[in-house]
Amino acid sequence: MQRVNMIMAESPGLITICLLGYLLSAECTVFLDHENANKILNRPKRYNSGKLEEFVQGNLERECMEEKCSFEEAREVFENTERTTEFWKQYVDGDQCESNPCLNGGSCKDDINSYECWCPFGFEGKNCELDVTCNIKNGRCEQFCKNSADNKVVCSCTEGYRLAENQKSCEPAVPFPCGRVSVSQTSKLTRAETVFPDVDYVNSTEAETILDNITQSTQSFNDFTRVVGGEDAKPGQFPWQVVLNGKVDAFCGGSIVNEKWIVTAAHCVETGVKITVVAGEHNIEETEHTEQKRNVIRIIPHHNYNAAINKYNHDIALLELDEPLVLNSYVTPICIADKEYTNIFLKFGSGYVSGWGRVFHKGRSALVLQYLRVPLVDRATCLRSTKFTIYNNMFCAGFHEGGRDSCQGDSGGPHVTEVEGTSFLTGIISWGEECAMKGKYGIYTKVSRYVNWIKEKTKLT
């Protein structure tokens, strides 16, 4: 034993070699072989497995989906700052455009905790909710729209109204504003409101030439003092309507412009014939205590009207009353817009006519005020429907199939267009061939041609 100890002390290297040989010859039971080890760690190889990531292109799944990435790591994937920024906006807080917040056709661009709407022409605001041009839906104005110097929408209202708090709607500024039905039992019968379409306001006024200088022999019209197929109006439903009495009662109609003036057809009036105007009328054979009678003290036909040349060209006249009318729910003026808007309103496509005229061709006159909704007829169809001249200051309205029309005794009465609950004068009943005849239409004086003249002559002093 002493000898062994001496050998170990003198030859430590020998001992180490012996131990190493023993270990190498022993069977290893701690580690699995290569094949079995792979069965336990069965993990798919990654895209760049075996390579240094710093030297390969980034992978979106590896960089940002398996674990949260930084902007720089995302930049490695896209290799483009702009594309990385677009991805980053949604990656950080989701897609803010998912709810489609942009209105009126706006395009949404996502941002971090926010979004941006790219608005089409005519709109602005956070969600493109603000109209900035009158060309689109009248700028959301209830009545009139004008573009300011910086191309912003400025709404306005006709006389007797003021802008509401929203700067879009119009509200009454006087007790009985024009064009409004205020009798409670008839307010439910107000005709369907007309909503502004998209309009090209630059070209809204037709490029028409008034044929002022045409000389033409007097034409022989049949029954051209021209509501057939209409309905009984309720008291106060058309408070701007008046009836004219002269040699015979209810020979023509008219509309209240203001307390002192009536507008009617020029062919209705004769110099030297006494005319009485009755406002607030409903049943011409009954006294309903809503009527107001006034005498006409002055007749002003349009300066281009000449019955000797043509009885229905420039067929418009103004009547001055001896005493002002007292405005109330049964006696209310009709609204008159400017030339541009009167023309736009007419193009809405349908209007209402009213009167006490004959209820059928050569038949009896109506006792109760009649009204009828009539569609506008395109000019080409209008011209083809008659052998008589249709001037540019006239328009056609009615039904091709016949059966409904204005008729004798309705002449001078109103053709009105309702705009968001307020009625505007767009025409004056003038003439036609018979009444409600198939293929024939009622012919009306186009008020847009005469609004400046009306307003100039009827100013209240």
Rank of each mutant, 00 (worst) to 15 (best):
R3G: 10
I15R: 06
Y22F: 15
Y22A: 11
L32D: 14
E35C: 04
N38Q: 13
N42R: 05
S49Y: 11
S49Q: 15
E54D: 11
V56W: 03
V56K: 04
N59S: 09
L60H: 09
E66V: 05
F71C: 04
E72R: 13
R75G: 15
E76H: 15
F78R: 15
R83I: 09
T84W: 04
F87G: 15
W88A: 15
K89H: 09
Q90R: 06
E98I: 09
L103G: 06
N104C: 00
G105P: 01
G106I: 00
I112N: 10
W118D: 02
P120N: 06
F121V: 05
G122F: 03
E129Y: 02
L130D: 11
L130K: 15
C145Q: 03
Y161F: 10
A164N: 07
Q167Y: 09
S169G: 08
A173V: 12
A173I: 12
P177S: 05
S182H: 07
S182R: 10
Q185I: 12
T190S: 15
V195Q: 13
F196G: 14
V202R: 10
S204C: 05
A207R: 05
Q219R: 06
N222D: 14
N222S: 15
K234V: 13
Q241E: 03
V243C: 05
G253L: 09
E259Q: 07
V263R: 00
V263F: 01
A265P: 04
A266E: 01
V269S: 04
I275D: 02
I275S: 03
T276S: 09
V277W: 00
V277Y: 00
V278Y: 05
H282Q: 10
E288P: 06
H289W: 11
H289E: 11
N295F: 06
H302L: 01
Y305E: 01
A308V: 09
I309C: 06
K311Q: 05
K311M: 07
L327Y: 07
P333Q: 03
Y341D: 06
N343C: 03
I344F: 11
L346I: 06
Y352E: 02
G357H: 12
Q370T: 08
R373H: 13
P375L: 07
R384Y: 06
S385N: 10
F395I: 01
G398I: 03
G398N: 03
E401I: 11
G403V: 14
G403W: 14
C407K: 04
Q408S: 12
S411N: 12
H415W: 02
T417D: 02
F424R: 00
F424I: 00
I443H: 04
V447P: 03
S448G: 08
R449S: 11
V451Q: 03
K459L: 09
T461C: 09
